[in-house]
C-alpha cells in the first residue's frame, strides 16, 4: 500500500524556486498495478523518487505499508530508466547484490538467482559483464536484481524508455508474466500511453508542471493480458480518452514555455 497525501515539491533553481509537484494525493492498493502518465518534465519521476526514499516532499506525507518513508529500502525496489548496473560486476554478481548485501545465506539466494535469471531469459550469461550485453538484456538484469529481493513494492521509472520498439514490447510481456506470478504493488512511471494501458490496472494522468493528478482512469481489460489487447476496440477507446488528456497538457506546456 502506497499513500501519497497532500504532497508538494519545490526545487531551488539558482535564485528561482520551481514548483514541481502541487498537492498530489494518490493511493496505490496492495497488489495494484498503477501507472503514472504525463508529459516530460511534469514531475512524475520526482514523485517516484519520493516513494523510493531518494527524495523528500517539501510538504505532505508519503507512506508505504503505513510507515513514513525516510530512506531507500529493499522493500521498495526500483528499476531505473538506465539499467544502472555495476559495470565491475558480472550478471550474477549484479543479481545477488541485494541479498548478499543484506547478509542472507548464500546457498539460498544462489538458488533463487539461478531461477530468476532463467525466468528473465538470461541463462548462459551469468558470467558476462554489463558491457557485453545489449540494452534489453541489461534491463533484464535490472529487473532480475530487484525480483530476487522479493519486494512488496516495485517502483519503475520509465524502465523501457531507452529500448527499441521490439525489445520494449518483449520486456512489457516479461513484466506482465512476472507480475501475474507475484502481484507486487507496482508504481510505473511512463510517457507512453500504450505501455501504461497495457500494463496497469489504473492510469493516473498528470498535468504539465507544476504536476498535479489530472485524472485517474481504471483499465478494465481482463488479465492475463498479452500484447494483442492493444488492438482491441476497448483499448482504442481508452487510448483516445488518454491521448486527449495528454495532448491538452503537452500543448499547455508548449505554449507556456514559449
Amino acid at each position: 500500500m502506497i499513500e501519497i497525501a497532500g504532497v508538494w515539491k519545490e526545487f531551488a533553481k539558482g535564485e528561482r524556486r520551481v514548483l514541481a509537484l502541487q498537492d498530489i494525493d494518490l493511493q496505490v492498493a496492495p497488489q495494484e498495478f498503477a501507472a503514472i502518465l504525463g508529459p516530460s518534465g511534469c514531475g512524475k519521476s520526482t514523485l517516484l523518487n519520493m516513494v523510493a526514499g531518494f527524495d523528500h516532499p517539501t510538504r505532505g506525507t508519503v507512506r508505504a505499508g503505513g510507515e513514513a518513508i525516510l530512506e531507500p529500502s529493499p522493500k521498495r525496489a526500483v528499476v531505473f530508466q538506465e539499467p544502472a548496473l555495476f559495470p565491475w560486476y558480472s550478471v550474477m554478481e549484479n543479481v545477488v547484490f541485494g541479498p548478499k548485501t543484506q547478509g542472507q545465506p548464500a546457498a539460498e539466494y544462489r538458488a533463487r538467482a539461478a531461477q530468476i535469471i532463467e525466468q528473465v531469459g538470461l541463462k548462459g550469461f551469468e558470467a558476462s559483464y554489463p558491457a557485453e550485453l545489449s540494452g534489453g538484456m541489461r534491463q533484464r538484469v535490472g529487473i532480475a536484481r530487484v525480483l530476487i529481493m522479493q519486494p512488496e513494492i516495485l517502483l519503475m521509472d520509465e524502465p523501457f524508455g531507452s529500448l527499441d520498439a521490439q525489445t520494449r514490447s518483449l520486456m512489457q510481456e516479461l513484466l506482465l508474466q512476472v507480475w501475474e506470478r507475484h502481484h507486487q504493488t507496482v508504481l510505473f512511471v511512463t510517457h507512453d500511453i500504450e505501455e501504461a494501458l497495457l500494463l496497469a490496472d489504473r492510469v493516473c494522468v498528470m498535468t504539465a508542471r507544476p504536476g498535479r493528478i489530472k485524472k485517474s482512469i481504471q483499465v478494465r481489460i481482463p488479465r492475463p493480458r498479452a500484447i494483442e489487447v492493444t488492438t482491441s476496440p476497448e483499448f482504442n477507446d481508452l487510448r483516445r480518452e488518454v491521448l486527449a488528456l495528454i495532448r491538452e497538457e503537452s500543448q499547455r506546456a508548449a505554449t507556456e514555455a514559449a
Binding site: F80, A84, F86, F97
Partner: peptide, 9 residues
C-alpha cells in the same frame, strides 16, 4: 549507481 545500491539495502 549510488541510489541502486542504497535501494538494495
Amino acid at each position: 549507481l549510488l541510489r541502486a545500491a542504497r535501494m538494495m539495502g
